[in-house]
Simulated scan of single mutants.
Amino acid sequence: MTGKTNTFYRITFKANSCSDLTEAGVQIVQERENLQQWDNWITSKANKSLVGMDRGANLRGAAIAVRSNEGSGNHIYRNLAIYDVNPHLIEGGDGLETVGTASKHINKFWADHISYKWISDGMDMEFVDNATISYLDFDGANEYNCWGTDPYMALVEDAHLTYANNYWHNTYGRVPKVTGENNGSQVHLYNQYVDYNRFFVAGANGHSASAKAYVRYENSNIDNGQGYLAEWGDNGYVYFSGVSFGNATKQQHRYNGDVKSGIPQAETFNPSYSFEKRTVANLPKEIPSLSGVGGRYGKMPEYDQRFGQSNKTASVSLSSPAAGVNAAISNSDDAIEV
């Protein structure tokens, strides 16, 4: 961010190149360099819903923060494409995030059928309870980043959160990364399809014995896992159950820096709700089709797509039938007899 503030963001390239990505070589952006900010930061109060009609709505550059400072909570976000939030920066804003505090959590949050791409800092869920993210299509491919994929996907801090029926692809890692800061976290994931991850899929680390981080990852499919299934440490617990692996996914995890073969099977928790498990073998086909804006009729937005309606609905016509003949409704996708 430049202009009227003195906030600087670290960027991913050294001297305008990708030659060196070590911490020692990373440059700090100075205000005089006039680096542009590509986002529209939005906060909101309690009891709000934002729902894209028909096949959804495009929110280019929207950085929506649900914050306890505004007394926010009880929010629903559905059928939206959120994209182009400072993709040229690291940790330069989320498209959709919750920001509570240790003493005042956000309560009740649901994000459903969201398409997500070119987002600087992913989708952070901090200090939130009774939260669900479902049918998310998160494409981490980012041509503005030196790695070609966004390094920060999903950070979860002190949260009780469910991920259901989500599609993660072209990810660097952190799908999700879960921490216990003050109160601890319990994160349940099921019916996930991960296609390409280069670092670790699930992360867990708790700051103390009273702030543990639990990740329960089940009934999911992981393809092209190039790194670790889990990266975890003290007071962090990752448990995999009913997860299938394909396309040379490495079945290994790393605990406090030590690499161990096999899947993580740490202490876990039992969800307090019932849920439907899909057939794991069908997830690579079903989840990409069902997730994101517009569901099976939608698609990821193009980079230069503007605010507004996402993928206009099909044209529909109804002709008057002859006596004794069923009416036929025709549209650009299919025909239905009524």
Rank of each mutant, 00 (worst) to 15 (best):
K277T: 10
K4L: 15
E97W: 01
A46S: 14
S185Y: 08
L89G: 03
A230W: 05
G95C: 05
Q27L: 12
P87V: 04
I11F: 10
H169F: 04
A46W: 00
V338S: 09
T268N: 11
H207N: 15
H253L: 03
L50D: 00
H113T: 05
G100D: 03
E231Y: 15
A327D: 08
E302T: 14
Y172D: 10
S241R: 10
K108C: 04
N34V: 15
I329E: 11
L136Q: 02
T268G: 04
F275C: 08
A266N: 13
G206P: 08
S103C: 09
P271D: 06
S220H: 08
I119F: 03
G294D: 07
V175T: 13
G225K: 00
D94T: 01
N182Q: 11
V99D: 09
F269S: 09
N311W: 08
M125Q: 04
G298A: 01
N58V: 05
A159W: 01
I90F: 08
G236P: 06
I133G: 01
N191M: 10
A327F: 05
I222R: 08
P87Q: 02
Y83A: 07
V201E: 06
I336D: 07
A204M: 04
N79Y: 02
P321N: 02
K177H: 14
I329F: 11
H75D: 00
T7I: 15
I11G: 14
I11M: 09
N183E: 12
S44N: 07
K14P: 07
T179Y: 11
N165E: 06
S44F: 01
G93M: 03
L35C: 06
P151H: 13
A209S: 15
A266I: 00
S49F: 00
Y193N: 07
G100R: 02
E31M: 14
A111G: 02
F199P: 12
V238T: 06
S272K: 10
A314K: 07
G236H: 07
D334E: 15
V280S: 09
T5Y: 12
L155W: 13
G71R: 04
K277H: 11
G25R: 09
P284H: 05
G294M: 03
S134R: 11
